[in-house]
Computed example of a mutant assay.
Amino acid sequence: MTGRDFKGYANTPPQVRWPEDARLAVSLVVNIEEGAELTLGAGDERNEHIYEAVEEVVGTRDLCMESHFEYGPRAGWPRIRDVLRSRALQATLNACGRAIEMTPWIAAEAVADGHEVAAHGWRWERHACMENIEERQAIARTVDVLTGATGTPPRGWHTRSATSPETRNLLIEHGGFLYDSNAYNDDLPYTVETDMGPHVVLPYAFDTNDMRFYNGGGFVFGDDFARYCIDAFDRLYAEGATAPRMLSVGLHTRIIGRPARIGGLEAFLDHALAHDRVWFATRADIAIAWRLGLGLPDWKPRPCPPDFAEGPPS
């Protein structure tokens, strides 16, 4: 088996310093997936069945499931937005193209608030078994919609759970991506060498993530989320006295945006804000700072090949 790295930094990470000599970079990631879930009503092959009430409906449109996802844009996003705005915090919105196509006001509000809008695929779907041409089209279509909704192309990409062996290569070939988050293997960014130079990977996390409210994941109350994220923060903050550290906190509008859970996010944020030398940053800003700390050249997007979505270069 090739292409795997179990060693990483071997407990000797680069001595990159975060802006303002912060001990810890905190990345808040708000996943915008609602409208991109599988549904027969949108012509998909089946209905989604990953949500609070797990009961897959086969052969007909699942209006109950659709309403679970609709909660996010209608009620969850306004709550999360208010929490971030009241604390002057910037986050990264991991946005599916089809979700933003259906809820464009979320992208507009995010840009107005200073958040980053990154790409989370066209549909809320895995890329693991995609054919090359299908994956190219998904990337191109997502970039087009997010660019139209925000005015600028996304600089980051994060595929839902499972990538294809070619996902990262396609992002690099596309030319417009500063980083991807298609990894879960470290508490720090790292770079991978490519034909186009070093590419930044910002690992994501499924433990400091509100998805653990679902399907027996361990969180029952907002306090569970707060305590778990605070424990992660405290450990990484302590380690940050001698080495850089990064904490990713994953949020979903239909999950943490519920009234009984949003207080858990507020409690975590207020705990973190009570500490000095903590840098709340977008993932793009973290990737740029990491490149700078490593002494790499400034990143500039390259033009996407005009035939990118049509197939591999000949």
Rank of each mutant, 00 (worst) to 15 (best):
D223N: 12
H127T: 08
L247G: 04
M130F: 13
A284P: 03
R87H: 11
F6R: 14
R61Q: 12
L89S: 08
R4E: 04
W122R: 07
T12H: 13
N94F: 15
R136M: 01
C304I: 00
E266W: 00
P19N: 02
G59P: 10
R155P: 00
D207A: 12
G43R: 12
D298A: 15
L38K: 15
I172E: 08
G121E: 05
N169V: 00
W279G: 02
G148R: 13
C96M: 02
G176H: 05
V58L: 09
S86G: 02
A284V: 06
F6D: 12
A226K: 08
A183F: 06
W105V: 12
G35M: 07
L93F: 15
R85W: 02
P312W: 09
G3R: 10
C64Q: 14
E66M: 11
A226E: 08
E34A: 09
D276H: 11
N215C: 05
R212E: 08
H252K: 09
R98A: 14
E193C: 03
P244R: 08
I230E: 06
G41Q: 11
T12C: 06
V200E: 04
A95L: 06
F213S: 07
L93N: 02
A287Y: 05
D276N: 11
T39F: 03
A36I: 02
Y179N: 05
G3A: 08
I139Y: 05
T150H: 03
T163L: 06
A119M: 07
H275I: 06
S314G: 13
I286N: 07
H199L: 03
L265Q: 07
P306H: 12
A272L: 09
D113K: 00
V249F: 07
G175P: 10
A36E: 06
P244Y: 07
V117K: 07
A232S: 15
G197C: 09
A243H: 10
N209S: 11
D21K: 14
R261H: 14
G264C: 09
T39M: 09
W279Q: 02
L89G: 10
A287V: 11
